[in-house]
């Protein structure tokens, strides 16, 4: 069964169709790319999936349950975590605290237990700290735990954002242009890391990317979005030779 199945998703902003008849299907464990020219509606599609925007029409099924109408935090609690195109860290907090916050909705102790410091408070706080450190270790950020997030170099901020998303323990990870602003060397490392995350954590990943080498190199299947609709999907090789895709990117009339 498909982990995420989106059918005829449409979003209009005052008459303008930012996303129209958007259909995708992602199976468990896949690593999928979503590409398209600037303004094609990729980020809008992400925002629809994560509940930032409410769709005008269409349906989205995740794990067999509808995502339509859920708030962003509810979507995350269902098991979809994301990163942002423009990094959104908790910039004045330490690296460790950034990750700790992602465990928030797994915490079982209540308000009174935290205030009176009784019950599960200590055991759960220890567990969160331990898990957060493990997560940081995976991303080689453990020696930066006390650094303030905004003081990290750019590449590490991007890594921290992915680490934080994973700490929410999602089934599906959405990455919005993870390689934006990276040099080829960093992009290559990121590629390795994304593949490793998927294999190691048995995740499903959907990523938006402009960097073709990254998308072609790492994704198993690619969807191409243009003017809000999916115009093609297939393996990297198929996409590379698809005339419609070439047209969308180069503007030539071949399709």
């Amino acid at each position: 069964m498909a982990l995420l199945k989106i059918n005829k998703l449409t979003k209009e902003f005052g008459g303008l169709k930012a996303v129209a008849n958007f259909n995708i299907e992602i199976n468990d464990g896949e690593l999928i790319g979503l590409i398209g020219p600037n303004g094609a509606g990729k980020t809008t599609a992400f925002n629809l999936m994560t509940g930032v925007y409410e769709p005008t029409s269409g349906e989205m099924l995740f794990d067999g349950k509808s995502l339509v109408g859920l708030k962003p935090y509810e979507v995350t609690q269902r098991g979809i975590a994301r990163t942002f195109q423009n990094i959104r860290l908790f910039s004045d907090l330490s690296v460790l605290d950034n990750v700790k916050i992602a465990y928030h909705f797994h915490v079982k102790y209540g308000l009174w237990e935290s205030v009176l410091r009784v019950g599960r408070y200590y055991s759960e706080e220890d567990m969160i700290e331990q898990k957060a450190m493990e997560c940081l270790k995976m991303f080689k950020l453990d020696d930066r735990r006390d650094e303030i997030a905004k003081n990290l170099p750019y590449g590490e901020q991007r890594r921290l954002e992915i680490a934080r998303a994973l700490a929410a323990q999602p089934k599906l990870l959405l990455l919005d242009e993870p390689a934006a602003g990276m040099n080829p060397q960093e992009t290559h490392e990121l590629m390795e890391m994304i593949r490793w995350i998927r294999d190691e954590l048995k995740l499903t990943i959907l990523l938006i990317e402009h960097d073709m080498s990254l998308v072609m190199g790492v994704c198993e299947r690619i969807y191409v979005l243009d003017y809000g609709s999916i115009i093609a999907d297939g393996t990297p090789a198929e996409i590379r030779n698809n005339p419609c895709v070439i047209e969308a990117y180069l503007g030539e009339e071949v399709c």
Binding site: T50, V52, K71, P72, Y73, T76, Q77, A81, R82, F84, R88, L89, F90, S91, D92, L93, I101, A102, H104, F105, R164, A165, A168
Partner: peptide, 13 residues
Amino acid sequence: ENEIAAEAMGVDT
């Protein structure tokens, strides 16, 4: 720190 990121991390803001 960042309300949108907090929501995305599962916090009912």
